[in-house]
Amino acid sequence: MKKNNFEYLRPLTIAEACDMKEKYAEKAKYWAGGTDLLLQWQQGVVNLDYCIDLTFIPELSYIRQDSENLSIGALTILSSIETSSEIDSSLSIISEGASELATPQIRNTATIGGNVCRAAPSADMAPPLLVLGTEVKLVNSSGERWLALDEFFLGLNKTAREENELLVEIRIPVPSSNAASCFLKVGRTVVDIAIVNMAASMTMDDNAILSDVRIAFGAVAPTPLRIKLAEEMLLGVNVSAIDSAMIDKVSDKVANEVKPITDVRGTMEYRREISRVLTKRAIERNTQALTKRVLS
Protein backbone atom coordinates (compact mmCIF):
# COMPACT_ATOMS: atom_id res chain seq x y z
CA MET A 1 0.00 0.00 0.00
CA LYS A 2 2.27 2.78 -1.24
CA LYS A 3 1.13 6.25 -0.37
CA ASN A 4 1.14 9.36 -2.49
CA ASN A 5 4.38 10.87 -3.66
CA PHE A 6 5.91 13.64 -1.59
CA GLU A 7 8.08 16.63 -2.28
CA TYR A 8 11.57 16.67 -0.87
CA LEU A 9 12.85 19.78 0.93
CA ARG A 10 16.37 20.28 2.17
CA PRO A 11 16.93 23.11 4.68
CA LEU A 12 20.54 23.88 5.58
CA THR A 13 19.80 25.80 8.79
CA ILE A 14 17.35 25.49 11.68
CA ALA A 15 15.74 28.80 10.70
CA GLU A 16 15.17 27.58 7.17
CA ALA A 17 13.63 24.34 8.42
CA CYS A 18 11.24 26.25 10.70
CA ASP A 19 10.15 28.51 7.86
CA MET A 20 9.39 25.50 5.66
CA LYS A 21 7.38 23.90 8.44
CA GLU A 22 5.50 27.15 9.03
CA LYS A 23 4.65 27.30 5.35
CA TYR A 24 3.41 23.74 4.87
CA ALA A 25 2.22 23.03 8.45
CA GLU A 26 0.75 19.54 8.92
CA LYS A 27 1.28 18.69 5.26
CA ALA A 28 5.02 18.59 6.02
CA LYS A 29 6.95 16.32 8.35
CA TYR A 30 10.43 16.70 9.76
CA TRP A 31 12.61 13.82 8.61
CA ALA A 32 15.50 12.94 10.93
CA GLY A 33 17.23 9.54 10.40
CA GLY A 34 13.97 8.34 8.90
CA THR A 35 14.35 4.71 10.00
CA ASP A 36 10.86 4.76 11.50
CA LEU A 37 9.16 7.44 9.42
CA LEU A 38 10.14 5.82 6.10
CA LEU A 39 8.53 2.55 7.17
CA GLN A 40 5.43 4.32 8.44
CA TRP A 41 5.11 6.17 5.17
CA GLN A 42 5.65 2.99 3.12
CA GLN A 43 3.00 1.20 5.17
CA GLY A 44 0.57 4.06 4.71
CA VAL A 45 0.39 4.80 8.44
CA VAL A 46 1.74 8.30 7.91
CA ASN A 47 0.80 10.66 5.13
CA LEU A 48 3.06 13.43 3.99
CA ASP A 49 3.16 15.87 1.12
CA TYR A 50 6.45 17.49 2.06
CA CYS A 51 9.48 15.80 3.59
CA ILE A 52 11.73 18.29 5.38
CA ASP A 53 15.03 16.39 5.50
CA LEU A 54 17.06 17.57 8.50
CA THR A 55 20.13 15.49 7.55
CA PHE A 56 21.95 18.42 6.01
CA ILE A 57 21.73 20.85 8.94
CA PRO A 58 25.20 20.71 10.53
CA GLU A 59 24.15 22.84 13.52
CA LEU A 60 21.88 19.99 14.68
CA SER A 61 24.60 17.39 15.11
CA TYR A 62 27.00 17.71 18.06
CA ILE A 63 27.90 16.36 21.49
CA ARG A 64 29.20 18.97 23.92
CA GLN A 65 30.05 18.39 27.54
CA ASP A 66 30.98 21.09 30.05
CA SER A 67 31.08 21.02 33.86
CA GLU A 68 27.33 21.54 34.14
CA ASN A 69 25.62 19.93 31.17
CA LEU A 70 25.87 17.40 28.42
CA SER A 71 24.26 18.91 25.32
CA ILE A 72 23.38 16.74 22.36
CA GLY A 73 22.10 18.05 19.04
CA ALA A 74 18.85 16.38 18.05
CA LEU A 75 20.22 15.00 14.77
CA THR A 76 23.20 13.30 16.43
CA ILE A 77 23.21 9.66 15.39
CA LEU A 78 23.06 7.08 18.15
CA SER A 79 26.40 5.49 17.26
CA SER A 80 28.11 8.84 17.90
CA ILE A 81 26.58 8.90 21.38
CA GLU A 82 27.52 5.25 21.90
CA THR A 83 31.19 5.86 21.14
CA SER A 84 31.68 9.50 22.17
CA SER A 85 34.66 10.24 24.38
CA GLU A 86 33.08 13.59 25.25
CA ILE A 87 30.49 12.05 27.56
CA ASP A 88 31.40 12.05 31.28
CA SER A 89 31.45 8.64 32.98
CA SER A 90 28.74 9.84 35.39
CA LEU A 91 26.45 9.93 32.34
CA SER A 92 27.42 6.53 30.98
CA ILE A 93 23.80 5.31 30.98
CA ILE A 94 23.21 7.67 28.06
CA SER A 95 25.84 5.86 25.99
CA GLU A 96 24.54 2.49 27.24
CA GLY A 97 20.99 3.30 26.18
CA ALA A 98 22.28 4.31 22.75
CA SER A 99 24.44 1.19 22.43
CA GLU A 100 21.53 -1.17 23.14
CA LEU A 101 19.16 0.39 20.65
CA ALA A 102 18.53 -1.83 17.62
CA THR A 103 21.44 -2.83 15.34
CA PRO A 104 24.77 -1.14 14.53
CA GLN A 105 23.43 -0.17 11.10
CA ILE A 106 20.31 1.47 12.56
CA ARG A 107 22.44 3.28 15.14
CA ASN A 108 24.45 4.76 12.27
CA THR A 109 21.26 6.29 10.85
CA ALA A 110 18.77 6.83 13.68
CA THR A 111 19.02 10.01 15.74
CA ILE A 112 18.47 10.79 19.42
CA GLY A 113 15.92 13.47 18.54
CA GLY A 114 14.02 11.03 16.37
CA ASN A 115 13.98 8.41 19.11
CA VAL A 116 12.59 10.91 21.63
CA CYS A 117 10.05 12.57 19.29
CA ARG A 118 8.70 9.26 18.03
CA ALA A 119 7.68 8.65 21.66
CA ALA A 120 7.53 4.88 21.37
CA PRO A 121 6.76 3.30 24.76
CA SER A 122 9.90 1.19 24.35
CA ALA A 123 12.32 3.96 23.24
CA ASP A 124 15.66 2.93 24.74
CA MET A 125 16.90 6.50 25.16
CA ALA A 126 13.87 7.53 27.22
CA PRO A 127 14.49 5.89 30.63
CA PRO A 128 18.11 7.08 30.97
CA LEU A 129 17.16 10.59 29.85
CA LEU A 130 14.17 10.66 32.22
CA VAL A 131 16.13 9.73 35.34
CA LEU A 132 18.87 12.27 34.62
CA GLY A 133 16.56 15.29 34.61
CA THR A 134 16.81 15.97 30.88
CA GLU A 135 15.37 19.05 29.23
CA VAL A 136 14.64 19.49 25.55
CA LYS A 137 14.78 22.64 23.47
CA LEU A 138 11.94 23.23 21.04
CA VAL A 139 12.03 25.97 18.44
CA ASN A 140 9.68 27.38 15.83
CA SER A 141 9.98 30.33 13.51
CA SER A 142 8.93 32.76 16.23
CA GLY A 143 10.91 31.55 19.24
CA GLU A 144 12.11 28.76 21.47
CA ARG A 145 11.24 27.08 24.76
CA TRP A 146 12.74 24.53 27.11
CA LEU A 147 10.68 21.69 28.45
CA ALA A 148 11.46 19.01 31.04
CA LEU A 149 11.40 15.58 29.41
CA ASP A 150 9.08 14.57 32.28
CA GLU A 151 6.43 16.74 30.67
CA PHE A 152 7.24 15.77 27.09
CA PHE A 153 5.69 12.32 26.71
CA LEU A 154 1.90 12.66 26.67
CA GLY A 155 0.63 9.39 25.22
CA LEU A 156 1.33 6.63 22.75
CA ASN A 157 3.49 8.33 20.08
CA LYS A 158 2.26 11.69 21.39
CA THR A 159 4.46 14.44 22.78
CA ALA A 160 4.16 18.03 23.96
CA ARG A 161 5.93 19.15 20.77
CA GLU A 162 3.58 21.46 18.89
CA GLU A 163 3.04 20.78 15.21
CA ASN A 164 5.27 23.71 14.17
CA GLU A 165 8.06 22.98 16.66
CA LEU A 166 11.39 21.33 16.02
CA LEU A 167 13.27 19.59 18.81
CA VAL A 168 16.82 20.86 18.41
CA GLU A 169 18.72 19.99 21.57
CA ILE A 170 18.72 17.56 24.46
CA ARG A 171 20.40 18.88 27.61
CA ILE A 172 21.33 16.63 30.49
CA PRO A 173 22.67 18.07 33.76
CA VAL A 174 25.88 16.39 34.97
CA PRO A 175 25.00 14.41 38.13
CA SER A 176 26.76 15.15 41.42
CA SER A 177 29.60 12.87 42.45
CA ASN A 178 27.19 11.46 45.05
CA ALA A 179 24.92 9.94 42.43
CA ALA A 180 24.76 6.46 40.92
CA SER A 181 22.70 5.32 37.97
CA CYS A 182 22.15 2.29 35.79
CA PHE A 183 20.28 1.25 32.64
CA LEU A 184 18.78 -2.22 32.24
CA LYS A 185 17.00 -3.76 29.27
CA VAL A 186 15.38 -7.10 28.66
CA GLY A 187 14.78 -8.00 25.03
CA ARG A 188 14.48 -11.25 23.15
CA THR A 189 17.85 -10.69 21.47
CA VAL A 190 20.48 -7.95 21.74
CA VAL A 191 19.02 -6.18 18.73
CA ASP A 192 15.33 -6.45 19.57
CA ILE A 193 12.90 -3.80 20.78
CA ALA A 194 12.71 -3.87 24.58
CA ILE A 195 10.23 -6.12 26.34
CA VAL A 196 10.99 -3.91 29.32
CA ASN A 197 13.70 -1.27 29.72
CA MET A 198 14.42 0.92 32.71
CA ALA A 199 16.87 3.24 34.36
CA ALA A 200 17.33 4.27 37.96
CA SER A 201 19.38 7.02 39.53
CA MET A 202 19.98 7.59 43.24
CA THR A 203 21.67 10.64 44.76
CA MET A 204 22.75 10.90 48.40
CA ASP A 205 23.69 13.92 50.49
CA ASP A 206 26.86 14.22 52.61
CA ASN A 207 25.26 12.12 55.35
CA ALA A 208 24.49 9.27 52.93
CA ILE A 209 20.78 10.09 53.00
CA LEU A 210 19.04 9.66 49.63
CA SER A 211 18.02 13.13 48.50
CA ASP A 212 16.94 12.32 44.96
CA VAL A 213 15.67 9.04 43.53
CA ARG A 214 14.38 8.50 40.01
CA ILE A 215 13.10 5.30 38.48
CA ALA A 216 11.88 5.29 34.87
CA PHE A 217 10.44 2.46 32.82
CA GLY A 218 9.77 1.84 29.16
CA ALA A 219 7.45 -0.61 27.35
CA VAL A 220 5.16 -0.99 30.38
CA ALA A 221 2.71 1.86 29.65
CA PRO A 222 1.63 3.99 26.67
CA THR A 223 4.64 6.25 27.30
CA PRO A 224 8.02 5.91 28.96
CA LEU A 225 7.37 7.05 32.52
CA ARG A 226 8.72 7.58 36.00
CA ILE A 227 7.31 5.54 38.86
CA LYS A 228 7.15 8.33 41.41
CA LEU A 229 5.37 6.37 44.15
CA ALA A 230 8.27 3.94 44.17
CA GLU A 231 10.86 6.71 44.08
CA GLU A 232 9.31 8.35 47.16
CA MET A 233 9.73 5.19 49.22
CA LEU A 234 13.50 5.59 49.05
CA LEU A 235 13.71 9.33 49.65
CA GLY A 236 15.25 10.26 52.99
CA VAL A 237 16.55 6.74 53.54
CA ASN A 238 20.16 6.24 54.63
CA VAL A 239 22.09 4.22 52.06
CA SER A 240 23.23 1.82 54.79
CA ALA A 241 19.58 1.13 55.69
CA ILE A 242 18.64 -0.17 52.23
CA ASP A 243 18.15 -3.88 52.85
CA SER A 244 16.51 -6.62 50.84
CA ALA A 245 13.16 -6.15 52.60
CA MET A 246 13.06 -2.51 51.56
CA ILE A 247 14.16 -3.31 48.02
CA ASP A 248 11.39 -5.90 47.79
CA LYS A 249 8.81 -3.35 48.89
CA VAL A 250 9.93 -0.81 46.30
CA SER A 251 10.00 -3.50 43.61
CA ASP A 252 6.48 -4.59 44.56
CA LYS A 253 5.34 -1.00 44.28
CA VAL A 254 6.80 -0.76 40.78
CA ALA A 255 5.12 -4.02 39.77
CA ASN A 256 1.80 -2.61 40.98
CA GLU A 257 2.23 0.75 39.32
CA VAL A 258 3.23 -0.31 35.80
CA LYS A 259 0.43 -0.77 33.27
CA PRO A 260 1.85 -3.15 30.69
CA ILE A 261 -0.01 -4.73 27.81
CA THR A 262 0.31 -8.16 26.23
CA ASP A 263 1.78 -8.08 22.74
CA VAL A 264 3.99 -10.12 20.44
CA ARG A 265 7.06 -9.43 22.62
CA GLY A 266 5.69 -10.38 26.01
CA THR A 267 2.63 -10.79 28.17
CA MET A 268 1.35 -8.30 30.68
CA GLU A 269 2.20 -10.68 33.52
CA TYR A 270 5.75 -11.24 32.26
CA ARG A 271 6.38 -7.52 31.89
CA ARG A 272 5.10 -6.88 35.40
CA GLU A 273 7.39 -9.56 36.81
CA ILE A 274 10.40 -8.31 34.84
CA SER A 275 9.70 -4.78 36.09
CA ARG A 276 9.92 -6.11 39.63
CA VAL A 277 13.18 -7.93 38.97
CA LEU A 278 14.83 -5.03 37.14
CA THR A 279 13.90 -2.61 39.93
CA LYS A 280 15.54 -4.92 42.42
CA ARG A 281 18.71 -5.27 40.34
CA ALA A 282 18.94 -1.54 39.69
CA ILE A 283 18.53 -0.53 43.34
CA GLU A 284 21.03 -3.17 44.43
CA ARG A 285 23.55 -2.00 41.89
CA ASN A 286 23.15 1.70 42.71
CA THR A 287 23.22 1.02 46.46
CA GLN A 288 26.46 -0.90 46.04
CA ALA A 289 28.03 1.96 44.09
CA LEU A 290 26.92 4.53 46.66
CA THR A 291 28.06 2.39 49.61
CA LYS A 292 31.54 2.19 48.10
CA ARG A 293 31.66 5.97 47.93
CA VAL A 294 30.50 6.32 51.57
CA LEU A 295 33.29 3.98 52.67
CA SER A 296 36.04 5.59 50.62
Binding site: Y8, R10, W31, G33, G34, T35, L38, L39, C51, D53, T55, S79, A102, T103, P104, Q105, I106, N108, T109
Partner: peptide, 26 residues
Protein backbone atom coordinates in the same frame (compact mmCIF):
# COMPACT_ATOMS: atom_id res chain seq x y z
CA UNK B 1 12.85 -4.27 3.42
CA UNK B 2 12.15 -3.03 6.91
CA UNK B 3 15.46 -2.86 8.72
CA UNK B 4 15.49 -6.24 10.40
CA UNK B 5 17.78 -8.48 8.36
CA UNK B 6 20.84 -6.42 7.37
CA UNK B 7 21.10 -7.89 3.85
CA UNK B 8 21.04 -4.41 2.24
CA UNK B 9 23.94 -3.11 4.34
CA UNK B 10 26.27 -0.69 2.53
CA UNK B 11 28.98 1.63 3.81
CA UNK B 12 28.19 5.33 4.03
CA UNK B 13 31.37 7.29 4.70
CA UNK B 14 32.79 3.98 5.89
CA UNK B 15 30.00 3.17 8.35
CA UNK B 16 27.49 0.35 7.81
CA UNK B 17 23.93 1.53 7.22
CA UNK B 18 20.80 -0.08 5.78
CA UNK B 19 20.16 1.01 2.21
CA UNK B 20 16.49 0.01 2.54
CA UNK B 21 15.95 2.36 5.47
CA UNK B 22 16.95 5.66 3.96
CA UNK B 23 15.99 7.95 1.14
CA UNK B 24 18.52 8.07 -1.68
CA UNK B 25 18.60 11.84 -1.17
CA UNK B 26 19.92 11.36 2.38
Amino acid sequence: GEGECGACTILLDGKPVLACMMLAKQ
